[in-house]
Design a protein around this nucleic acid. Structure first.
Lengths: 217, 217, 217, 217
DNA sequence: TATGAATGAGCATTCATTCAT
DNA sequence: TATGAATGAATGCTCATTCAT
């Protein structure tokens, strides 16, 4: 009947804004990832953060803003992780390979972040799509650039399709990452190599101008 | 006195249950697809369906049940469309090709359905995942079988990776479909062929035992 | 998934009104007794009765009317049972004794009826109070008359208090009946004799070991 | 513009939780007593309490909890009132007498409380029965103890029947209290003495003109 | 006589959000 | 800076009741 308040870090008073914001964002990511955007209540977030609700509103604004802030932060981390893994001077296939590995490593390490980014953000309409789309676009653009460079370096002309292909690739990565979440015993490197093989052998041929065409249609 | 009641089809009275159920499901798909599961209100659904709320509850149960029913129906239609497009006796590549085309055709024709299936159902936890997962699994299984058949028919041994690859493929398709929703001027056949080329040239090599390996790691 | 409709008597068609009414009242008493007035739904009653709701409304009116009808019927049966047990020519104590026994017998045999009469009807405001009050008043009046007759026959003057005493007596009976519902292993005759002793001899005498016993049974 | 807001005490702002809880409970008792549990709406309670509904839920929980809280509070007050009236060293008859008087005084003074306790709580199933049963049991136990003590002090053996007798006595009190509610011109002391005589002397003695009178008052 | 179809109206409950301190 | 107190506004859901057949 009496609530024990021991479980949470003794609500420290008068912390600098920066710290509070981090606390709140951490809590928000956790809660959003657990219950989804709509079922996450500001009450629970404030509870988990060890901060009163008015603080949240003062520092990070409305629920939507808060969610967007989460996405922004996590997306940045993801992009940073990938950028970190990729060496710009390496050949295209190695770039893609390292990018994929970094991606899967991130997903494996930061499941909460990934869930918020992928599962939650995707489904919410308008406001978040923008945040997420922005990130997704950056990712696609990156891959796109890779493909284009790769094609031109071999003497081919990049077609419009590269952007679409990039989209497909990113989707494949996400989907495979989801699959991986349910099969955690498969090593990250293996998963990455599967995807790499799938797309590279395919992409490689494409880039070289080989095309599959339906027969007898 | 009240607002004009002309806008909706004159609320036909005393229809057989079957008809009402269809009306309701149609409305629900529309509304869920527009606002998402949580922001869709039963009130609006009943409004759009031209039916009072109690009818919805009487015929299709709670909001969750209703949503599940939507997913089930739309998923069935999607699967049926794909099955319809594929000819079982055709060679693997043609089967995949026709499957893809049927898939993109469905997405193009039934945008609402697709949005409900993909964006909404994916993000909602528990109860729906099951319905959707079931369908997704069926799709993945289908592709998986295709790969296995294809591999064995060429004298190779199917590895565990096929299921993962199938997952990746399905994800790629979904993602590309989403991309396409934002680029409607690209003909369906072209989009399908992009994806086909991406995965087939890749998958083909894989199936034949060709493997990409990182160099200089 | 398929509903078996075997459990209920095959919904016979075209029964005479009298029969239908009985069916409905029986069902209503059962349901009211189980869930209480408010939690009993017309749907369930119609279900249990094996009759469609419009029939109920046609034959017995609104929920309130239906409930009142239940009370009337059950109350009549109770009063009849008591009247049956009492012999008008017997001496007052024997009259009371037989009345009590008949009452407890009724409660023991018709628990549902009793529950509706006592627990449900008592608590509902206005409309039912009247029905129930009428019965209760009849009971009280009966006891009242007994006391008055008894007193005058011994040369005493009846005071206003008799009515109040009768009320108290009836309450004691009801409460003891409730107690008995929770102690079913006590024989009816014993319970009746306890109450008889309490009210006839008084606690003072009981405490002193005086006991009333029926004569000539 | 809106209806006059003068009728209720100027909605004081920002009161401590304790005060609000009392306000809410007071309002709840009033409303429950007027309309009964089911017909009482949380809206009305919040209105009468001069508090918004969310406060009720925040402080006292769901409707059931709220009702239980009411019962608990009122029951405690009743028991306290009785305990206050009884002197433990007095002889049994005087103890009973003072207990009865305290009881009737409470009923007379706190009609709302009594109605909630008796009429409402009794009729509602499960959850409340427990609260109320607990109190009723305490009351019965109290009387039971009185009887046992009284009997043994005179050299008699207490039988199992005491508990049942206590139940009967409590029921008689409740019923008489109800009767009294409809005959408010009878003084409390008189009503109490009627019941006292009934149970202490027994009807038999009463009929013979024997009367119990308090000594040394 | 008998019923499946249909609804108006209400109610408990929750949540994001904001004062007053 | 920081929060307990407070609420407007929805929303899911149910039920008694009545048509149209």
């Amino acid at each position: 009947m009496s609530v024990d308040e021991e479980s949470r870090p003794a609500r420290a008073k008068r912390l600098p804004r920066e710290v509070r914001e981090r606390q709140i964002l951490d809590a928000a990511v956790t809660v959003f990832s657990q219950h989804g955007y709509h079922n996450a209540s500001m009450d629970e977030i404030s509870d988990v953060a060890g901060v009163s609700k008015p603080m949240i509103y003062a520092y990070l604004g409305h629920k939507e803003d808060l969610f967007a802030a989460c996405i922004r932060r996590e997306a940045s981390q993801l992009m940073a992780a990938i950028a970190d893994g990729v060496h710009a001077e390496a050949p295209p296939d190695m770039q893609l390979w390292h990018g994929l590995r970094a991606f899967f490593r991130f997903v494996g390490d930061q499941r909460e972040s990934w869930r918020v980014l992928h599962r939650q953000a995707t489904s919410q309409g308008g406001p978040f799509s923008e945040e997420l789309l922005a990130m997704r676009t950056r990712a696609i653009t990156l891959v796109d650039a890779l493909l284009v460079r790769s094609a031109t370096s071999r003497g081919h002309t990049a077609t419009q399709s590269t952007e679409a292909l990039a989209a497909a690739l990113v989707g494949a990565g996400e989907s495979l990452a989801d699959w991986w979440l349910d099969h955690p015993d498969v090593p990250e490197k293996v998963v990455a190599s599967w995807l790499m093989n799938l797309v590279w052998m395919g992409l490689g041929n494409l880039v070289d101008g080989a095309v599959w065409t339906p027969t007898g249609e």
